[in-house]
Nucleic acid binder design. Structure first.
Length: 520
RNA sequence: GACCCCAUCGUCCAGCGGUUAGGACACGGCCCUUUCAAGGCUGAGACACGGGUUCAAUUCCCGUUGGGGUCGCCA
């Protein structure tokens, strides 16, 4: 019997079948099977940074592993020496770690497994399920082009599959270079996808693809099958751009007489213009979002909700909550659009509930970079306490962490200008005396706390016979340089008496100068 | 072009034969008030189309259209 035509029985619990086998589908996995320890992996290639699409796939894998008490592994697919760069690996691992995901075992570097891959190429050749192809690249390109022109699917024409043993031997002895192609049998192939249910493909649609290069090294699909098998991967969860690869890989599993894992193909993330997210189009690195002030828990949460939901309306969720509710089979089939606005909205909510230590850690270096504080200043315990109070006051209105630098800078420096619109609107001539009067009232107040300040302001406003607002707005502008921000009295108390008074009087002077300039 | 996948507000998600089709982001209005980029309330906004099946289709089936993916000695 020719191996390439025999029907390989995959393991009974498996989800592969051919059309000649009407084996029952097992979409509903038994509890026993669901709870069996699983092994999943994320396999990035170091041809660039980690973009949100890959990050999301990693998250789904990670959740699946945690949910089923399994292992989450990382394999670096760095066999393409042309494109892979070693220094691109660490940033990818860092980004995964930032999101809270690390490999449960040593990271596998595919490039170190070349010999093993080659041994499987030999097995394929020995069993007769693969053959040598001596066709030149030029001829192949012509065939492909012609097929496209004639509106047929471009597929290898099997010229070399029909070579006699003698012909092959002769060519090999003549030193002709060859690649190895797998022989795809007749029939059709169906597998049950955990997300997409049954998918069928005619085997005739799949060409005898190349599994090994002229130099004998394995190509992607073979290497993946070999490594997944040897790593004990039970569930392959990846982007649905791999569906065609899945069929190819299934044929490799069969040719090798190995059990195939379960597959789940998750929808691809799209850009607002509906194109697939890619590095080419300048889509951001996951780490870049982090650098811009998106919290890792926000990214994790948001990415999960692209194509999946807990069904009960919850959106802002902690990792543990998501883990609890996650279910691969609940992943949608359609491709969602990545929306930065919603990501930011999620971030706003996560900033509100984030541990203060995390925000402190994130904000401190940014303050220093902005030149607002020094490392000495940050080292001081009282200052840390002060910073924590400022963050707590500001976190209610922050969308991304960087907002803090622009909207809270005045807590750390006297060097700030006045918002232009605010200047025109609030720093009118009469504000000068009002600021002076209010500063005096604050000065003579017994204490510098919420109640005392508010009482002082009410009293002064009444004396001047104007609304509180006539004092409040100029004061806010004088002390913060901004027209928006937290409650005024909270702000003043935190800035402190000395600085508040100085800034109010400084603003009063500024207004008087402005006045004389306008009317000389 | 061939093959595969998909199809509910602009976007994300809910809905699993009978609903005033729900929530979130974004957008508009109103309120609060000391500001808003905060908070509260509210409004507009969707079942792509055509056939079936059914007493009844957004829900099931088929087709059309539209979108996405794949078609390398890349991964």
């Amino acid at each position: 019997m020719r191996a390439s035509f025999c029907v390989i029985r995959v393991r009974p619990s498996n989800n592969l079948m051919t059309n000649s086998e009407t084996k029952a589908h097992n979409q509903d996995m038994s509890d026993e099977e669901t709870n069996k320890p699983c092994v999943v992996r994320i396999a990035p290639s170091p041809s660039g940074y980690l973009h949100v699409g890959t990050a999301r796939t990693a998250i789904f894998n990670w959740l699946y592993a945690r949910k089923h008490n399994g292992k989450f592994l990382i394999r670096i697919e760095d066999t393409d020496t042309e494109r892979s760069e070693a220094d691109l690996i660490q940033p990818i691992l860092d980004a995964l770690k930032w999101l809270g995901m690390e490999s449960d075992e040593d990271i596998v570097y595919q490039s170190t497994r070349d010999e093993i891959h080659r041994s499987y190429v030999a097995k394929l050749l020995d069993s007769g399920s693969a053959y040598r192809c001596f066709c030149s690249k030029e001829r192949l390109a012509e065939v492909r082009e012609l097929a496209m022109k004639e509106k047929r699917a471009p597929r290898y024409d099997r010229t070399c599959a029909n070579l006699s043993e003698q012909e092959v031997t002769a060519k090999v002895e003549a030193g002709d270079s060859f690649v190895i192609r797998i022989k795809i049998p007749e029939g059709s192939t169906t597998y049950t996808d955990m997300v997409l249910s049954d998918i069928t493909r005619e085997n005739s649609e799949i060409e005898d693809f190349v599994v090994a290069r002229a130099n004998g090294s394995a190509l992607y699909n073979l290497a993946v099958v070999v490594d997944d098998h040897e790593m004990g991967v039970t569930d392959v969860i990846r982007g649905n751009d791999h569906i065609t690869n899945t069929f190819k890989q299934i044929h490799i599993y069969r040719a090798l007489e190995l059990n195939a894992p379960r597959f789940a193909h998750v929808p691809l993330l799209l850009r607002p213009d509906k194109r697939k997210i890619s590095k080419r189009l300048g889509d951001k690195d996951v780490a870049e979002y982090g650098a811009d002030g998106v919290l890792p828990q926000t990214m994790f949460n948001y990415l999960c909700l692209l194509g999946w939901s807990p069904k009960d309306g919850r959106e802002i969720m902690a990792r543990e909550e998501i883990m609890e509710a996650f279910d691969v089979q609940g992943i949608n089939k359609n491709n969602p659009v990545f929306d930065v606005q919603k990501l930011n909205a999620f971030n706003k909510e996560h900033i509100k509930i984030a541990p203060i230590e995390q925000l402190l850690e994130l904000i401190s270096p940014k303050l220093q970079e902005a030149g607002l504080v020094s490392s000495d200043w940050l080292a001081d315990e009282d200052n840390q306490l002060y910073l924590a109070k400022v963050i707590d006051l500001m976190r209610e209105r922050m969308r991304i962490v960087d907002d803090f630098i622009v909207s809270a800078g005045f807590f750390f420096t006297d060097e700030f200008g006045y918002d232009q619109k605010g200047d025109r609107k609030q720093f009118v001539p009469e504000s000068a005396d009002r600021l002076t009067a209010l500063a005096d009232a604050f000065d003579s107040a017994s204490t510098f706390d919420l109640e005392a300040l508010e009482a002082a302001l009410d009293e002064v406003a009444e004396k001047h016979d104007v609304k509180r607002a006539a004092f409040i707005h100029p004061t806010r502008l004088a002390v913060s340089g901004l027209t928006v921000g937290p409650g005024l009295f909270d702000l003043l108390v935190l800035v402190g008496k000395e600085k508040t008074l100085a800034r109010m009087r400084r603003a009063a002077d500024y207004i008087r100068t402005k006045k004389t300039e306008v009317t000389p």
